[in-house]
Every structure is written in C-alpha cells, then in structure tokens.
Amino acid sequence: MFVTFLKFAENRAAAPNFIAAHNDWIAKGFADGAFLCVGSLQPAAGGAILANGENRVDHDARIAADPFVAEGIVTAETYEIDPKRTVAAMDFLKTPA
C-alpha cells in the first residue's frame, strides 16, 4: 500500500490550466483499481493519495504521469506501508503473515 503526498511547488499558479487533465488522471486511477482514496491536504497545501494493488515501479510510473507532477505544479513524495492491523472493512490491505 502506498501513501503519496502531492505538495504544491513553484509552478502552482499553473494548476487551473491542468486541473481537468489532473482530474481525468485521478479518475483513471480509480477505474484501474489502484486508488482507494484521494483528498486535499489542508489548508490548501496539495493532495494525498492512498493506493493499493500495484508494485512500487508501477505506482511511481502512475504518479509521474499525473499532469500536476509532469508540469511541476506539485512534487510527489511516496511512502510504502506494510499494513499489519486494520479495521475489518480494510482487511484486504493486510499483508499475509
């Protein structure tokens, strides 16, 4: 499982020009079954993605394809998590023992 933080960068002012493409990219992440949750970092600091179901190389490639990342609107920082304990609804995330 991965948590990726997309923090606004120097080219933040260009965000309105790429928001439609960024939203399409998010929709594809959900359609592909890779994204579990996407939301904003508060207050207006960028965004965060909770993802599962692909390896690190594929996840990093997906993140690099985000128009916001490609255009320098955000910088991406990804952490890999090996879930050991979850609520029952999220048991699918746990790594087998």
Rank of each mutant, 00 (worst) to 15 (best):
F2G: 02
F2Q: 05
F2T: 00
F2W: 07
T4Q: 04
T4P: 00
L6P: 03
K7M: 12
F8L: 15
A9W: 05
E10I: 02
E10F: 06
E10K: 15
R12M: 10
R12I: 10
A13I: 06
A14V: 04
A15N: 04
P16G: 06
I19Q: 09
I19V: 09
W25M: 03
I26M: 07
G29Q: 01
F30H: 06
D32T: 01
G33W: 08
G33I: 01
G33V: 04
G33F: 04
A34F: 13
A34Y: 09
L36K: 12
C37D: 06
V38S: 13
V38W: 07
V38N: 06
V38K: 09
G39C: 11
G39A: 06
S40I: 02
L41F: 11
P43K: 12
P43C: 03
A44G: 13
A44Q: 14
A44Y: 11
A45Y: 10
A45G: 13
G46Y: 10
G46K: 11
I49Q: 09
L50F: 12
L50R: 08
L50C: 11
A51F: 03
A51H: 02
N52Q: 14
N52D: 15
N52Y: 12
R56T: 00
R56W: 00
V57P: 00
V57N: 07
D58H: 02
H59G: 00
D60P: 05
R62E: 09
R62P: 06
F68I: 02
F68Y: 15
F68M: 09
E71K: 14
G72S: 10
I73Y: 07
I73A: 02
A76Q: 05
T78W: 01
Y79R: 13
Y79G: 10
I81G: 01
D82H: 14
P83A: 10
P83L: 08
R85F: 13
T86F: 07
T86W: 08
T86V: 11
V87K: 14
A88N: 09
A89R: 14
L93F: 08
K94Q: 15
A97T: 13
